[in-house]
Computed example of a mutant assay.
Amino acid sequence: MHFELSEEQNAIYDLVVGFMADKWSGDNRRQGLDSYPCQIPGELLREVADLGFYGISLDENSGGGGEPLLTSALIAEAAGGGLFPSLLTTTLVAAKALDLCDADSNWLAKVISGQQTVAIAIEEPNGCWGLDSIELTPQMDGQGGYLSGSKILVSDGDFAQVFLVAALLPDGPAFIRVNANAEGVEINSMRRLDGQSIVELEMKDVRFEQDDVLGDGAILNQVYDIWTVLIAADLLGNAQSVLRMTTDYAKERQQFARPIGSFQAVAHRLADIQVDVEIGRSLLYGACLALEEESDEATALVSAAKAWMNDLGVNAAETGLQLHGGIGYTWELDIHLHLRQARSNAVTLGDSKYHRARVASHLMSPEY
Rank of each mutant, 00 (worst) to 15 (best):
residue 256 F to V: 09
residue 257 A to G: 10
residue 257 A to T: 14
residue 257 A to M: 14
residue 258 R to T: 13
residue 258 R to F: 02
residue 258 R to W: 02
residue 258 R to N: 03
residue 259 P to G: 04
residue 259 P to I: 09
residue 259 P to F: 04
residue 261 G to R: 02
residue 261 G to E: 05
residue 262 S to W: 10
residue 262 S to P: 00
residue 263 F to H: 10
residue 264 Q to R: 11
residue 265 A to M: 09
residue 265 A to N: 08
residue 266 V to F: 04
residue 267 A to K: 04
residue 268 H to G: 08
residue 268 H to E: 15
residue 268 H to Q: 15
residue 269 R to D: 12
residue 272 D to W: 06
residue 272 D to G: 05
residue 274 Q to M: 05
residue 274 Q to S: 13
residue 275 V to N: 06
residue 275 V to K: 12
residue 277 V to E: 08
residue 277 V to H: 02
residue 278 E to K: 07
residue 279 I to R: 05
residue 280 G to N: 02
residue 281 R to L: 15
residue 281 R to E: 14
residue 281 R to G: 01
residue 282 S to K: 13
residue 282 S to T: 14
residue 282 S to E: 15
residue 284 L to W: 14
residue 284 L to Q: 12
residue 285 Y to W: 15
residue 285 Y to Q: 12
residue 286 G to A: 05
residue 286 G to S: 12
residue 287 A to F: 03
residue 287 A to P: 05
residue 287 A to V: 03
residue 288 C to W: 03
residue 289 L to K: 06
residue 290 A to E: 09
residue 291 L to G: 08
residue 291 L to K: 05
residue 291 L to H: 07
residue 291 L to N: 04
residue 292 E to Q: 13
residue 292 E to G: 08
residue 292 E to S: 11
residue 292 E to I: 00
residue 292 E to P: 01
residue 292 E to R: 01
residue 293 E to A: 15
residue 293 E to G: 03
residue 293 E to N: 13
residue 294 E to M: 07
residue 294 E to V: 07
residue 294 E to G: 08
residue 296 D to E: 15
residue 296 D to K: 13
residue 297 E to M: 03
residue 297 E to N: 07
residue 297 E to T: 14
residue 298 A to M: 07
residue 298 A to K: 08
residue 298 A to Y: 02
residue 299 T to D: 10
residue 299 T to E: 10
residue 299 T to Y: 00
residue 299 T to S: 15
residue 300 A to E: 07
residue 300 A to V: 06
residue 301 L to M: 10
residue 301 L to V: 04
residue 301 L to F: 01
residue 301 L to R: 15
residue 301 L to C: 11
residue 302 V to M: 03
residue 303 S to E: 04
residue 304 A to S: 11
residue 305 A to Y: 05
residue 305 A to Q: 06
residue 305 A to K: 04
residue 305 A to E: 10
residue 305 A to L: 01
residue 305 A to T: 09
residue 306 K to S: 11
residue 306 K to C: 10
residue 309 M to N: 05
residue 310 N to Q: 08
residue 310 N to E: 06
residue 310 N to F: 09
residue 311 D to N: 15
residue 312 L to Q: 03
residue 315 N to D: 09
residue 315 N to K: 14
residue 316 A to H: 04
residue 316 A to F: 11
residue 317 A to N: 04
residue 318 E to V: 14
residue 319 T to L: 13
residue 319 T to V: 13
residue 320 G to P: 12
residue 320 G to I: 13
residue 320 G to F: 13
residue 320 G to R: 03
residue 321 L to P: 00
residue 321 L to Y: 01
residue 321 L to C: 11
residue 321 L to F: 01
residue 321 L to W: 03
residue 322 Q to D: 10
residue 322 Q to G: 01
residue 323 L to D: 03
residue 323 L to C: 02
residue 323 L to R: 00
residue 324 H to Q: 14
residue 325 G to M: 11
residue 325 G to A: 12
residue 326 G to A: 15
residue 326 G to Q: 15
residue 329 Y to S: 11
residue 329 Y to L: 12
residue 330 T to W: 04
residue 330 T to D: 07
residue 330 T to Y: 01
residue 330 T to P: 02
residue 330 T to M: 05
residue 332 E to N: 07
residue 332 E to R: 05
residue 332 E to C: 00
residue 333 L to E: 11
residue 335 I to K: 05
residue 335 I to T: 08
residue 335 I to H: 02
residue 336 H to G: 01
residue 336 H to V: 07
residue 336 H to I: 11
residue 337 L to R: 13
residue 338 H to Q: 10
residue 338 H to Y: 15
residue 339 L to H: 06
residue 339 L to C: 04
residue 339 L to N: 00
residue 339 L to G: 01
